[in-house]
Amino acid sequence: MFYPNSPQTSPQLTQIPYGQQYAMMQRQIQQPYHPFATTEPQARLYPYHYQGPIQQEQGGFITQQSTAASPQYVQMRVTPVDQSIMSGYPNQTANGSSSSSFNYNIHPQQQQQQQQQQQQLRHHAMPVGSVPLQDDRYRKQLIVNYLAPDVTSTDLHELFSRFGELDGARIIYDKQTNMSKGYGFVYFCHAEDAKEAVERMSGYEFHGKWLKVGYSTNPLNIVPSNSSPYVHAGSRGAAG
């Protein structure tokens, strides 16, 4: 039997160049792979992502010199942007860049009308829970959420009447099932009393439920100042 490094198959040491006398086997001759043993700084910083320098080929596509990437890492192929796409944008300079302001050559009167329309939209648009300043009635009506099913309009009136005089209180019921929808409205005579009720009743436990109280901004629920107070009856038909 002959071994790869046996004296019968191995040459004389004098015939082997210096430095390879003890590297006779194939696994010894093959050098191990060192990912950080390279002179390129990109490979030292990113050993798993770097795959060699990027070269520009004919046709405008950018390719990489090395083989496919590892399945664990996804390499994105980048193509140059066609400058003709950006030619339609206004205020574009000769080098292809555009300024931040756009001039669509709008007539001054049209621009003024658009600004007025935007101001009107901001004036009428009102986020949930906010209180408008032009109508004091919005500051007097509250919406009470997360009410228990057994709470009546009379219970709601008695709960909030300790903060001040009320114009009314009612629970909203479903017309088909005649069941409470879980929320109601309270109408105060003074805005200061309503503000105190919002601050003190939010998070209050009532009939096993934690109440959420806020201003009601729905104009359909506003009680006119010259109208008669609501009837605080315990029956659902009268309260709904």
Rank of each mutant, 00 (worst) to 15 (best):
47 P>R: 07
110 Q>E: 11
28 Q>H: 06
236 R>N: 00
89 Y>V: 06
137 R>M: 01
200 R>G: 06
218 N>L: 02
15 Q>H: 00
24 M>R: 05
74 V>M: 12
179 M>C: 10
158 E>Y: 01
27 R>A: 08
151 V>I: 11
102 F>R: 08
13 L>H: 08
58 Q>D: 08
181 K>Y: 12
135 D>K: 00
232 H>Q: 08
87 S>F: 11
85 I>F: 08
231 V>C: 14
147 L>D: 04
109 Q>P: 15
75 Q>W: 15
158 E>N: 13
90 P>H: 02
176 Q>I: 00
7 P>L: 07
66 S>K: 04
110 Q>T: 03
214 G>H: 10
136 D>Y: 11
111 Q>T: 06
152 T>P: 10
75 Q>P: 09
69 A>W: 15
156 L>A: 09
6 S>R: 06
67 T>Q: 12
21 Q>L: 12
174 D>V: 11
124 H>F: 01
105 N>L: 12
225 S>L: 05
125 A>E: 13
20 Q>C: 10
52 G>R: 09
207 H>M: 14
95 N>R: 10
65 Q>V: 03
212 K>P: 14
28 Q>E: 11
208 G>Q: 05
97 S>Q: 11
70 S>R: 08
53 P>Y: 04
74 V>Q: 14
235 S>F: 11
123 H>W: 13
216 S>L: 01
205 E>S: 08
219 P>A: 03
11 P>Y: 12
119 Q>A: 04
222 I>E: 15
212 K>C: 09
141 Q>K: 07
220 L>K: 08
14 T>K: 01
34 H>S: 15
238 A>H: 01
73 Y>S: 02
90 P>W: 04
216 S>C: 01
119 Q>C: 05
158 E>K: 02
31 Q>R: 06
37 A>V: 11
140 K>C: 00
222 I>M: 03
85 I>D: 05
19 G>R: 10
72 Q>Y: 15
130 S>L: 02
137 R>G: 09
187 Y>F: 00
4 P>H: 04
106 I>L: 10
30 Q>P: 06
177 T>K: 09
112 Q>T: 10
120 Q>V: 02
122 R>T: 11
104 Y>E: 15
98 S>F: 15
86 M>K: 01
141 Q>R: 01
161 S>N: 00
173 Y>K: 08
211 L>T: 08
44 R>N: 04
64 Q>E: 11
124 H>N: 09
15 Q>I: 15
58 Q>M: 11
87 S>I: 01
156 L>P: 13
51 Q>S: 08
113 Q>K: 04
117 Q>P: 06
72 Q>P: 01
13 L>P: 03
112 Q>N: 07
165 E>V: 10
212 K>G: 01
236 R>V: 04
206 F>S: 04
224 P>F: 04
100 S>P: 06
189 C>S: 12
144 V>A: 02
179 M>T: 14
190 H>W: 14
34 H>A: 10
45 L>M: 05
61 F>P: 12
32 P>N: 11
126 M>T: 08
65 Q>E: 13
67 T>G: 02
189 C>R: 06
111 Q>P: 11
43 A>H: 01
58 Q>W: 00
166 L>E: 10
216 S>Q: 13
171 I>R: 07
144 V>M: 06
133 L>N: 06
157 H>F: 04
27 R>F: 15
10 S>F: 05
56 Q>P: 00
226 N>W: 04
192 E>L: 03
53 P>M: 06
225 S>P: 05
30 Q>V: 13
168 G>Q: 01
108 P>N: 02
68 A>I: 12
61 F>D: 01
15 Q>N: 06
223 V>M: 01
17 P>H: 07
132 P>H: 08
226 N>K: 05
89 Y>W: 05
213 V>K: 10
84 S>R: 14
191 A>W: 00
8 Q>S: 02
179 M>A: 02
156 L>N: 14
125 A>S: 07
44 R>D: 13
218 N>G: 08
6 S>V: 06
220 L>I: 14
109 Q>V: 02
174 D>Q: 02
118 Q>K: 03
196 E>D: 08
17 P>G: 14
19 G>H: 00
186 V>I: 08
188 F>C: 04
107 H>K: 12
7 P>C: 08
167 D>G: 10
109 Q>E: 15
158 E>G: 08
240 G>F: 15
142 L>G: 13
147 L>F: 08
169 A>M: 15
189 C>W: 13
231 V>F: 08
95 N>D: 02
60 G>D: 11
133 L>A: 02
229 P>M: 04
24 M>C: 10
204 Y>S: 04
94 A>R: 07
26 Q>R: 04
151 V>T: 06
199 E>K: 10
235 S>H: 10
70 S>C: 08
25 M>F: 02
211 L>P: 02
234 G>R: 11
73 Y>W: 10
194 A>I: 13
3 Y>G: 04
61 F>Q: 03
38 T>N: 12
79 T>D: 05
46 Y>G: 07
238 A>W: 14
203 G>P: 10
93 T>E: 15
52 G>I: 13
106 I>P: 12
155 D>S: 00
180 S>V: 09
81 V>K: 03
166 L>S: 05
120 Q>H: 02
32 P>V: 09
156 L>Y: 12
96 G>C: 05
233 A>F: 01
55 Q>Y: 13
96 G>W: 02
174 D>Y: 06
207 H>V: 03
105 N>Y: 15
67 T>S: 05
172 I>W: 07
46 Y>P: 04
185 F>E: 12
163 F>Y: 15
154 T>G: 12
150 D>A: 12
37 A>T: 07
19 G>E: 14
199 E>R: 07
174 D>E: 08
217 T>M: 07
94 A>S: 03
75 Q>E: 01
143 I>P: 01
157 H>V: 11
209 K>W: 00
154 T>E: 01
78 V>R: 06
234 G>C: 06
63 T>Y: 10
118 Q>C: 07
88 G>P: 07
191 A>S: 03
111 Q>W: 12
33 Y>D: 08
92 Q>I: 10
200 R>F: 00
74 V>R: 10
189 C>F: 00
180 S>M: 03
4 P>S: 12
157 H>K: 10
99 S>P: 14
240 G>H: 15
208 G>I: 06
75 Q>S: 11
202 S>Q: 13
216 S>H: 12
67 T>Y: 14
28 Q>R: 07
91 N>C: 07
166 L>H: 02
178 N>C: 10
10 S>E: 08
18 Y>H: 10
88 G>V: 05
20 Q>H: 04
96 G>V: 04
144 V>K: 00
81 V>F: 15
118 Q>V: 09
221 N>C: 08
51 Q>C: 13
50 Y>Q: 09
52 G>T: 08
59 G>K: 09
67 T>C: 00
140 K>Q: 00
164 G>N: 04
142 L>W: 14
137 R>W: 02
186 V>D: 13
130 S>C: 09
27 R>W: 15
21 Q>H: 14
231 V>L: 04
42 Q>V: 03
213 V>Q: 15
149 P>H: 03
29 I>Q: 02
225 S>Y: 08
167 D>P: 09
228 S>G: 05
87 S>H: 10
35 P>D: 08
213 V>N: 09
166 L>D: 12
194 A>D: 10
25 M>G: 01
215 Y>I: 04
170 R>F: 00
175 K>F: 12
240 G>Y: 14
234 G>K: 04
14 T>H: 15
206 F>E: 09
195 K>M: 13
158 E>M: 03
133 L>H: 00
60 G>R: 04
38 T>V: 00
88 G>A: 05
225 S>G: 12
124 H>I: 03
214 G>T: 05
201 M>Q: 00
56 Q>I: 10
198 V>D: 11
12 Q>L: 07
165 E>S: 11
216 S>E: 04
212 K>M: 03
111 Q>S: 14
71 P>S: 11
44 R>G: 10
229 P>N: 02
59 G>D: 00
205 E>P: 12
229 P>R: 08
156 L>S: 12
149 P>Y: 01
91 N>K: 07
169 A>C: 14
170 R>Y: 10
151 V>R: 11
208 G>C: 05
